[in-house]
Nucleic acid binder design. Structure first.
Length: 365
DNA sequence: AAACGCCGCAACCGCCGAGGT
DNA sequence: AACCTCGGCGGTTGCGGCGTT
């Protein structure tokens, strides 16, 4: 059977449209309407196939097309709709006035998809994936520093445990604390009444679900939301270290920590929340008035698309294929002159995955 | 200044479903 | 029922711009 091509390609022009061709096409459609695309180029005097005319019109010349960069709201909408509709670009475009499916598809492939990948989010399933995170720092640490306590065999053998961000978060936080003066830290705990909060966590169901060695360790870890802006350099240093070590363990590209933009929270909220309520990877833990950092709540799309995904589990990770359909073949950055997008890039950089050199995973497994 | 590589985007390609004959 | 046309869709390509070396 075989269907005939949409048009006779012989003698028909291909490639970029000239302004003259655009003008001819626009003039014709303004007079006659789109009508029959097959016959349109002949009637209009264009050496193009009907399909090419239709694409040029629908994707570029249509008067109601909105050109220019995507707004943050538009991007949010795209992500949200994609999480529900998948690669149904036309359906997504139908909900974004002025945007074409082709434009949205291009924007997804060149910007959003890559950013999700770098943030450890599978752009197909919108689920977090450890294997999509930036693990280069792990390898660098393991390969370039002979004194590191982290060895690759342990790392590989501990994959299952590593997939649990709670354990990761806990482990690295504890490790960072071990690097500091623990006595000094405990003093700060007492001064700030952190121990009271600490004791409370023993009643938290989430804690009881942790391995016993974690429970013991947790009892040595500050878990509070105490305001400690007056705590001095130690606090700042610890905060910095904890940020360095804890950042990135949430797979949520939008998840940040309360301490990131607030002077009020001493302990990263991720640690706090991990023990109070195991993290949802589309968390809304931060309310910030800093316009430079998007509020996590702005990513309601993530959250709404994953209702019920409150408790991160290994199963949730394993539910996605280990080998992505989307190869990690892009090293591109989120390049755009928009300051807003630069800020987003900065924001996403919070999610870099790092493990301190002194981390001995065996201690926590 | 030239060469090179990367990236974004417009355009193309192939397939599909709906509808007509 | 079989075939054909058409519009639409998603995936892919390739060109031009831009930055880097």
């Amino acid at each position: 059977m075989g269907r005939t091509p949409c048009c006779d390609k012989n003698g028909l022009k291909k490639g970029p449209w000239t302004s003259e061709e655009d003008h001819v096409l626009i003039s014709y459609i303004q007079l006659h309407g789109p009508g029959n695309w097959r016959s349109l180029p002949k009637n209009a005097g264009l050496q193009r196939c009907g399909k090419s005319c239709r694409l040029r019109w629908t994707n570029y010349l249509r008067p109601d097309i909105k050109r220019g960069r995507f707004s943050f709201d538009e991007e949010e909408t795209i992500i949200q709709l994609h999480s529900v509709l998948g690669n149904k670009w036309s359906a997504i475009a139908a909900r974004l006035p002025g945007r074409t499916d082709n434009e949205i598809k291009n924007y997804w492939n060149t910007h959003i998809r890559k950013r999700l990948l770098r943030n450890g989010i599978d752009p197909v399933t919108h689920a977090p994936r450890l294997d999509l995170l930036d693990l280069s720092s792990i390898l660098t640490s393991a390969l370039c520093n002979p004194s590191t306590l982290l060895n690759l065999s342990t790392l590989v053998g501990s994959t299952q445990a590593l997939l649990n961000p709670d354990i990761l978060r806990l482990a690295t936080t504890l490790s960072s604390l071990k690097q500091e003066n623990s006595d000094m830290f405990l003093q700060q705990l007492q001064e700030n009444q952190l121990l009271n909060s600490l004791l409370q966590i023993q009643d938290v169901p989430a804690l009881s679900s942790l391995p016993s060695q974690f429970q013991n360790l947790v009892q040595q870890v500050p878990v509070c939301t105490t305001t400690t802006t007056s705590a001095g350099p130690f606090i700042n240093q610890t905060e910095q270290i904890m940020q360095e070590n804890v950042k990135g363990f949430s797979s949520n590209p939008t998840c940040t920590f309360s301490c990131q933009n607030s002077q009020e929270n001493f302990v990263p909220s991720s640690l706090n929340e991990s023990l109070v309520s195991l993290p949802n990877f589309y968390c809304n833990s931060t309310t910030t008035t800093d316009p430079k950092v998007p509020e996590p709540g702005e990513y309601s799309g993530f959250q709404s698309a994953n209702n019920g995904y409150q408790n991160f589990s290994i199963d949730s990770v394993m539910s996605t294929p280990l080998m992505s359909q989307d190869p990690l073949n892009s090293s591109s950055t989120y390049v755009n002159s928009s300051s807003t997008e630069d800020e987003r890039e900065c924001y996403s950089s919070l999610l870099k995955f790092e493990i301190p050199e002194s981390l001995d995973i065996d201690d926590f497994l």
